[in-house]
Design a protein around this nucleic acid. Sequence first.
DNA 1: ACTACATTTGCAATACTGTTGCATTAATAA
DNA 2: TTATTAATGCAACAGTATTGCAAATGTAGT
Lengths: 125, 125
Amino acid sequence: MKNTRNTRARTEILNLITSSEEALSHSQIQSSLKDLCDRFTIYRVLDRLTYEGIIHKVVNIDGVIRYAKCHNCDEKHHPDHIHFSCEQCHTVTCLEDVEPQFKLPKKYKVHEVNFTVSGICPSCS
Amino acid sequence: MKNTRNTRARTEILNLITSSEEALSHSQIQSSLKDLCDRFTIYRVLDRLTYEGIIHKVVNIDGVIRYAKCHNCDEKHHPDHIHFSCEQCHTVTCLEDVEPQFKLPKKYKVHEVNFTVSGICPSCS
DNA sequence: ACTACATTTGCAATACTGTTGCATTAATAA
DNA sequence: TTATTAATGCAACAGTATTGCAAATGTAGT
Ligand SMILES: [Mn+2]
Ligand SMILES: [Mn+2]
Ligand SMILES: [Zn+2]
Ligand SMILES: [Zn+2]
């Protein structure tokens, strides 16, 4: 992919994700956008934004993939933060300040991390 | 679900998962079993075994759900262990000895954890 | 502002993944 | 062996995702 273009779909989807407090799934985005573009375009815009590193994927405990954009990562980015999935309100949120500590056996090379914790969030307890 | 029965499908699927070094997806299991039973039965057997706590789910970084049975958890069970997904050989394995440490903000209540790390496994490096 | 051109979109087609209802089969206990 | 009820097979259906291609559109260069 050489040059990426600022289309209406891309702009609106990025706005939506940026302004959202929770990580959004493809279907949530589709519902919000109504008829701005079709679902195929949403898939492709999400792929593009992820590839460009502007947003990041969150794989939930149920296997549903959501997308989020970090908020307070301006000073220091925490790429390996935890995500919390509330069993009651069904929101998935970035806990950007929580980075788990772990030690893998010697010869493993880590590229990517996905850490999701489910339970009850503060608002629901 | 009151009483669970030892059917051929259940026995074979559990054998397969138990003897496997890697976590297996539904489609991997279906390929291995050939015509032992249909795919609907596989779904239901996997749900049952998971519900009974005999096997556990692993949600991979790509969102694909796999199933595994712990091997050396006889002495001490580590339910929150890490799973490693190799980008080269595409295997997903339990690292039963690796339990990540993390501190969530006060009011979060944790029920379940899914921690997957992707990269290159020892065999592939 | 106009043009050229690569990127992006919409649509069709297709594949994969997963769930549910219902009649039939089969495991287990009595 | 028989009664009970879990489990299976099948059909139908819903949700999720990818790809090829023609048309539309954003962007750079003039
Ligand atoms: Mn995040
Ligand atoms: Mn495991
Ligand atoms: Zn909640
Ligand atoms: Zn490997």
